[in-house]
Write a protein that binds this DNA or RNA. Structure first.
Lengths: 126, 126
DNA sequence: GTAACGAATCGACAAACGTCGAAACAAGGG
DNA sequence: CCCTTGTTTCGACGTTTGTCGATTCGTTAC
């Protein structure tokens, strides 16, 4: 899929410095651009169906799941596909076709970046 | 404000067990109900303006900020108020009027719960 | 009282979103 | 080949969302 747009949430996945998009929320006020980037991640997880799909992939054996394994979330199959695409566009999932089936996998570096965003830091003195 | 609806994201703020709404995303597939609850939190942060407002409060001295301190995010005053209300309804902020001004404060227990949701756990063997 | 200021609510509007059924695409098996 | 199965795309629909200007509410100062 050469034309798919994936957000550059993480600059590189090289050995060490995973380079998150933004500092912790508590460090300083976000700039407009930082907020734009980070909001896309949160928005992607801001839907119950997507959260279930994401959790299903994330908790599946081997760290990946076929669409057919996780389609049981109470919406039609096209809707499942639609949500998986959104998670993929947000950079939270990657997909790979293997024969008949398509497998989705969690992009753990992005998940880590989001966790770092939410990291609690000591309250600044008034 | 007796009629405001605050989501029960955290059962209690008592001394120790902050009782998050849900297990880590990677632990097991979310139930519909867990997803519904957690998605509301993520959704609240899924807008750039709200993220900037939240970050501004979170990073402000003393852990709180007057609306007038953080209104500089490029939207009208009613819109700022609207977004602060959403963050409040999601349980991420609390507010308190002190004289002329209204101060917002981060509900850190909820922030912690969200961070725990995103905690990375080892990939299960296939 | 009334005027001034900060903040919340109201009403309206366009844009974005979630959902579905139908159709198209991809891969494998007769 | 054609048929079946898994997945994505398309088109349409109703709902939700973000935004604003105008108004209202709460508080303080005069």
């Amino acid at each position: 899929m050469p034309n798919s747009k994936v957000l550059p949430l993480v600059e590189s996945e090289a050995s060490e410095g995973v380079a998150p998009c933004c500092p912790p929320l508590t460090e300083r006020p976000f700039t407009a651009q930082e907020a734009e980037t980070a909001a896309r991640m949160f928005k992607a997880l801001g839907d119950p169906v997507r959260l279930r799909l994401f959790s299903a992939v994330a908790s599946h054996e081997g760290g990946e799941a076929c669409v057919c394994d996780i389609s049981d979330v109470g919406v039609s199959q096209p809707t499942v596909s639609h949500h998986l695409k959104k998670l993929k566009d947000a950079g939270l999932l990657t997909s790979e076709r293997r024969g008949t089936w398509v497998y989705y996998r969690v992009e753990s570096s992005v998940l880590a970046a989001m966790g770092r965003l939410l990291a609690l830091t000591p309250v600044k003195a008034a």
